[in-house]
Deep mutational scan, measured.
Amino acid sequence: VTTYKLVINGKTLKGETTTKAVDAETAEKAFKQYANDNGVDAVWTYDDATKTFTVTEMV
């Protein structure tokens, strides 16, 4: 189990959160659900070296 981080650069929601998951795909599903629940529709990137997902909402 690995800890993954999500950085949110949204128009109305900004911040960071983490989740523990067995792999990046599982973490991504959890983070996308979190973003969807909070109304963030954005572009996703992932950095495997830092285990960090970044979501940037387009203006």
Results as ranks from 00 to 15, higher is better:
Val43Glu: 08
Asp37Met: 15
Leu6Gln: 01
Glu25Phe: 10
Val40Thr: 06
Ala24Cys: 14
Glu16Asp: 05
Gly10Ile: 15
Thr45Asn: 07
Val55Gln: 03
Tyr46Ser: 00
Asp23Cys: 04
Tyr4Asn: 02
Thr19Cys: 14
Lys29Glu: 06
Thr54Arg: 04
Lys32Thr: 05
Lys51Ser: 03
Gly15Glu: 12
Glu16Gly: 08
Val7His: 04
Tyr4Met: 01
Thr56Pro: 02
Asp37Leu: 15
Glu25Lys: 12
Val43Phe: 09
Lys11Gln: 10
Lys51Ala: 03
Thr19Trp: 08
Phe53Asp: 00
Thr17Pro: 03
Ala42Cys: 12
Met58His: 10
Asn9Met: 13
Asp47Arg: 01
Thr26Arg: 05
Glu16Ile: 14
Glu28Ala: 12
Thr26Val: 05
Gln33His: 07
Met58Tyr: 12
Ala30Ile: 15
Asn36Ile: 14
Tyr34Ile: 09
Gly15Met: 15
Tyr46Arg: 00
Tyr34Arg: 03
Tyr46Glu: 00
Lys29Asp: 04
Ala35Arg: 06
Lys20Asp: 13
Glu16Leu: 11
Glu57Ile: 12
Glu16Lys: 06
Gly10Ala: 11
Thr45Lys: 06
Lys32Cys: 06
Phe53His: 00
Glu57Met: 11
Asp47Val: 03
Gly15Asn: 08
Thr45Ile: 07
Glu57Pro: 08
Asp37Ser: 10
Ala42Leu: 13
Thr54Cys: 06
Thr54Gly: 01
Tyr34Thr: 03
Asp23Phe: 03
Thr12Val: 10
Ile8Cys: 13
Ala24Val: 13
Val55Glu: 01
Lys11Val: 12
Val55Ala: 15
Thr12Met: 10
Val7Leu: 06
Phe31Ile: 02
Leu6Glu: 01
Asp41Pro: 07
Asn38Phe: 15
Glu16Asn: 07
Thr26Trp: 05
Asn38Arg: 13
Thr54Ser: 05
Asp48Asn: 06
Gly15Ala: 13
Thr2Arg: 08
Glu57Ser: 08
Phe31Tyr: 01
Val43Ser: 08
Lys11Pro: 12
Trp44Glu: 00
Ala49Met: 09
Ala42Pro: 07
Val43Asn: 08
Glu25Asn: 08
Ala35Pro: 02
Thr17Gly: 04
Thr3Lys: 06
Val40Gln: 06
Phe53Glu: 00
Thr26Met: 10
Asp23Gly: 02
Thr2Ala: 10
Ala21Glu: 03
Val1Asp: 09
Thr54Ile: 06
Thr3Trp: 07
Lys14Ile: 11
Lys29Leu: 09
Val40Leu: 14
